[in-house]
């Protein structure tokens, strides 16, 4: 139940022998994990590895088949005020008739409790959160009229409005361009500076070392967890990634999204296009050297491209 060493401050998140199943079929097996407070932690793994499920299990959104979850040493329910959640962007219907500000205000609902409406104080806070992510000019916009990166920022602002101690974020960088990614990372670093804990599902292996103090590598099981320098190794990555991703269906997706959206103003497609089709998510096929090796450090991008990349496509 307790870890060896200092147990004075409980870990921000602690999972013990956690197994999660959908329809009795486990998708996460026997996870033991402790996330110390105040760190920025990346959750890494291929599609379908159970990263979102892991986060949902911490939040009590999916029940544990076995094992337990503690948040700051207690059950999630008693600590929910201190936890902020950024779901995967696809998890909501962006056609919903609300403005960006409305969405950010939702971050304050937990504090308000049942039936109380957000007032001037909450609005001010929500506007402040929008400003921190550089979205103040879009406050009144209906959310489907925002680009993918802007939507992601709105989600981040909503989490900021929650003013939590622990943040669980599901792919906050998915489909955003480089500028937005930098903006988001800066906000996350701010949060870390203030002593908050961040648990972030992340897909881009090339930036892992730059962003995270610790990583958790999962693929249906816990492959490894610990300080990035020790854990983010070639062998662990090989063990984590069995499959591969291709860029072609992503490019097709870009075009499809663009056409759904159909331009209203002319030349500018949604920002998500830039990111979704960017080839850096391409992973090497099994057996090829892993995409990013820790010792490469700050090597230029071209040099970091895995040699296997060209063959990873059909």
């Amino acid at each position: 139940m307790s870890r060896p060493g200092d147990i004075q401050t409980p870990p921000a998140v602690e999972l013990h022998d956690l197994t999660v199943a959908y329809h009795k079929k486990p998708v996460l097996w026997d996870i033991d994990l402790a996330i110390p407070e105040g760190e920025m932690v990346g959750i890494i793994g291929p599609n379908g590895a159970g990263k979102s499920t892991l986060i949902k299990a911490v939040l009590g959104l999916v029940p544990a088949a076995t094992g337990w979850v503690r948040v700051f040493g207690e059950s999630y329910a008693s600590r929910r005020r201190e936890v902020g959640y950024v779901p995967q962007r696809e998890s909501v219907d962006w056609d919903f008739p609300v403005s960006a500000l409305d969405v950010v205000l939702m971050g304050t609902y937990g504090r308000l409790g049942w039936c109380r409406r957000p007032g001037a104080a909450e609005r001010k806070q929500a506007l402040g959160a929008l400003e921190r992510v550089g979205m103040q000019d879009f406050a009144r916009r209906q959310i489907s009229q925002l680009s993918g990166g802007q939507q992601q920022r709105v989600f981040l602002a909503r989490a900021l409005a929650q003013n939590a101690r622990l943040y669980l974020m599901d792919e906050p960088f998915a489909g955003v361009d480089a500028a937005t990614e930098t903006a988001i990372v800066n906000v996350l670093r701010d949060l870390k500076q203030q002593g908050r804990t961040l648990l972030v599902v992340h897909h881009d292996l090339q930036t892992v070392e730059g962003y995270f103090d610790r990583v958790v590598l999962v693929n249906l099981r816990l492959v490894a967890a610990g300080p990035t320098r020790e854990v983010f190794t070639r062998d662990n990555l090989l063990a984590t990634y069995g499959g591969r991703l291709t860029i072609l269906d992503q490019a097709a997706e870009t075009v499809r999204r663009f056409e759904d959206w159909l331009p209203q103003t002319g030349a500018e497609p949604p920002h998500s296009a830039a990111r979704a089709a960017a080839p850096q998510r391409l992973l090497s096929p099994p057996g090829a050297p892993p995409p990013a090796q820790p010792q490469h450090g700050a090597a230029p991008q071209a040099a970091r491209r895995p040699p296997g990349e060209n063959h990873a496509l059909p």
């Binding site: 939040l59 909501v92 919903f96 937990g110 039936c115 109380r116």
Partner: peptide, 22 residues
């Protein structure tokens, strides 16, 4: 009117609503 915000958030983002205690 009474459940305005609860209806709104649980329709838009049921997962977040649940984590917030709604």
């Amino acid at each position: 009117a009474v459940f305005w915000k609860e209806l709104k958030i649980s329709s838009f983002d049921p997962a977040l609503a649940t984590t917030l205690g709604i």
